[in-house]
Design a protein around this nucleic acid. Structure first.
Lengths: 234, 234
DNA sequence: CGAATAGTGTCTCTTAGACACTATGTC
DNA sequence: GACATAGTGTCTAAGAGACACTATTCG
């Protein structure tokens, strides 16, 4: 019978300048000192898992409102932490824009890094955080297809083009602006006009929108690219 | 900092006679003595989470092969177990047919019950197992749409009609036999003919199939019914 | 004016769903 | 033969994707 330390780890994603960014902390203590890691920490006594994730998110980013936060998966391989048995419940958070990250207690530094450099690059993450990050990014990519979650990356008011660039950054593709516009505005409850317009993107003024009440997209907006066969599995 | 007991709980689903069944154990000890619960147990030292789930599945059902098993979600509310802090990592298992369930150590009885009577009926489950069951069933329903997971409920060789009845039982709907047939046989890699036929369903002999190599269905086979908006959220 | 972006119209292709029809077994 | 189920063909409606076209701003 196992008695383990329980932690929450966070995959905090945001979009800036057409790049998908993830919040990473540089570990200031052993093990994996000097390596990048996902923010996280111990669950407190009497604290539920999601509450712990919310608290950590607040502590690490100052973000408290408007963040989408959901449980991702739990990782508990026996030797994933050399200090002893630690089971971590990973969570996925999507936040609107770049807030200044604050380094936590055992972190030397906290930065927004591109997902690309962490997953495709040679950067080595602490613990099993590379897998957790990969799982979180895949969850985000997949959820954009059938939920209005992408709006979680946008400010309160946004243009369709801004939302499109979110999708493009997360999926790493380009989308046809006209078809995207029609799909988004034609899905009831996805977005609602806020009344204003903006020319911050140049050209003809774009209407501003807020998120609608829909929680599910039907039909889904599937990401392009080779959907052949294979890849999933569970 | 939390040190908690870590358990795995199992939502084991199967299909029999057009009914979706779940494996339940009757608790023989306090707390919740006499109530139905999901099978599960403590994770062992040095054991990974999925391995623990696999071991419990084997102990409770005798099933070891051909079972689909995946992590579902983790539940760790402070008072979910009156004996102390217990964090449970729930798993979802789909198994082909009714195997005789064996009552575990602290269970008075082990039975296959219909999901309907446990979720829609007045039956009260132990702990937060009603929620875990609901989450597991929803996961299964949703995965049938875009993965060949439904085949996990079938024997090695099956007819298209048998597979269709699986979908109908899990989704609680009826499907057009002709359109289902075309969709399933027309999706490359979903199923492959095994060569044989059977008349066990009466009428014209049906070809027998085995599962194909595909791990993802594209395009998805969406369940019918009101997909309006709402319901998801996390 | 041209350049840039917003937004609409329209065509084609694919797919879901409805359902008539044919095929092949048992009784 | 009747009956049951297997499997195919065909029509229609809806949506995805391609892309011409119009609208409205800035400089």
């Amino acid at each position: 019978m196992l008695n383990a330390a329980v932690t929450v780890d966070l995959v905090v994603l945001t979009v800036r300048d057409d790049d998908l960014l993830v919040l990473a902390v540089k570990r200031g203590v052993a093990p994996y000192r000097g390596r990048w890691a996902l923010p996280g920490g111990f669950v407190h006594d009497g604290e539920d898992l999601l509450d712990a994730a919310e608290r950590e998110l607040r502590e690490e980013t100052g973000v408290s409102v408007r963040a989408h936060l959901e449980q991702l998966a739990t990782y508990g391989a026996p030797r994933r932490d050399p200090r002893g048995r630690v089971v971590t419940v990973a969570h996925l958070a999507l936040i609107p824009r770049l807030e200044q990250a604050t380094a936590g207690s055992d972190a030397a530094d906290a930065r927004w890094l591109t997902v690309r450099e962490l997953l495709d690059g040679s950067a080595r993450l602490a613990f099993d955080h590379r897998r957790i990050l990969a799982d979180g990014v895949e969850r985000a990519r997949s959820k954009l297809e059938y939920s209005p979650l992408g709006i979680g990356f946008c400010a309160d008011e946004f243009t369709i083009a801004e939302l499109r660039r979110v999708y493009e950054a997360v999926w790493g593709t380009t989308l046809d602006p006209r078809n995207f516009h029609r799909k988004v505005t034609g899905t009831p409850g996805f977005v609602v006009e806020s009344g204003g317009t903006t020319t911050r993107d140049g050209g003809r003024p774009a209407k501003l929108y807020r998120r609608g009440q829909a929680t599910l997209l039907h039909p889904a907006m599937l990401r392009p690219g080779p959907p052949q066969s294979g890849g999933d599995g569970g």
